[in-house]
Design a protein around this nucleic acid. Sequence first.
DNA 1: AGAAAATATGGTCAAATGACCACATATCGT
DNA 2: ACGATATGTGGTCATTTGACCATATTTTCT
Lengths: 192, 192
Amino acid sequence: MTDLFIIYLRKNASLTDSEIDRIISLSAAKTLRRNELLLQEGQICRHKGFILKGLLYTSGSAAGDTEHILQFSSEQSWILDAESYDQQLPSRFNIAAVEKTELLVWGRNDFETLRAEIPGLTTFAQQLISRNIYSSRQRILAALSGTPEEKYAAFVRNNPELLSRLPLRMIASYLGISLKTLTRIRHAQTQR
Amino acid sequence: MTDLFIIYLRKNASLTDSEIDRIISLSAAKTLRRNELLLQEGQICRHKGFILKGLLYTSGSAAGDTEHILQFSSEQSWILDAESYDQQLPSRFNIAAVEKTELLVWGRNDFETLRAEIPGLTTFAQQLISRNIYSSRQRILAALSGTPEEKYAAFVRNNPELLSRLPLRMIASYLGISLKTLTRIRHAQTQR
DNA sequence: AGAAAATATGGTCAAATGACCACATATCGT
DNA sequence: ACGATATGTGGTCATTTGACCATATTTTCT
């Protein structure tokens, strides 16, 4: 199963095989069942995770408001609450499994050890952060732009592989529209 | 005028006075007039800026949709398009001045030189990134949550000092609501 | 100071949305 | 495989929103 991680690193980072081995040697396997929490609001995020297989969502709520899904994270991606992890502060978010999910996780100290040993890992982590910032901006734009119908169309366009794995209510929560509106949109589309 | 920058660094970073001098020695002053662009969509972001005085906005648009304001940046904060700056790719955003604005700017090479010389600067930059990620998430939640009225109330609560400096249409653009809706909300509030 | 431009307000109307509810269907866990 | 639970669909209705337009007001620039 860690093969998937090796393949990912070979493809995306500039690391030697022994460096990759070393990284894996400090990891632990973790499995989440459907709906199980990886991180709960109020807890401190003590691990960085890499998703081998499965699908997670990150959710949170603005003061007083209902909960919304901020992000979906599927295989071949990292998952953590950066703010809580970096500063060891209680998280304001929940991270939970949409479906059965298998992860590799690293404790913060171990990962820092690895970063100190392996310069290429730091470089790689930087790139990930840069991408993260960019995708957050896209997400903000998507949330502000367009009608519910356009938002849904954009979601389908950008995440075709997630469609069948997610309940509609989660998609509605992610897009910031009501489930009612979402089913209306879909109904209108199948009519055509 | 650079005093403001010195004060900021003393307060927020762990740097010696000579390190601060060194950082300033590689900076250049820049002034933007109202509405003037600091960065235009399609251009590559070649500088990192620090705002001494004034107010900027960052705007962009999702495919086909109208432009929205992603962020306001006022004195004592950094401004750049991280994606474009890091990877030297054309920016997808505009950054422009709401009002006359004075900045310090550093070319990318110079800043990297500074980072290599001054470890404390790297640490500090990391913290800024971490905060950036967090505020992006808050922004996403705010965009998804609540009615226009609640969004406006949250904006007023979180940015009281910006209210009088921004035209309403920019606030509307930032919140993702129409100008009409915004004036309606304000009208209703003054009635009470 | 004065002309020109930008900004804010307000009216009307059609359309879209969300809240609430009931019911059908699919999915999950044992 | 089965019962229980979660999920999706659909109806109705009141409310809100945005589009379009005209006009009043403020601000900017020279």
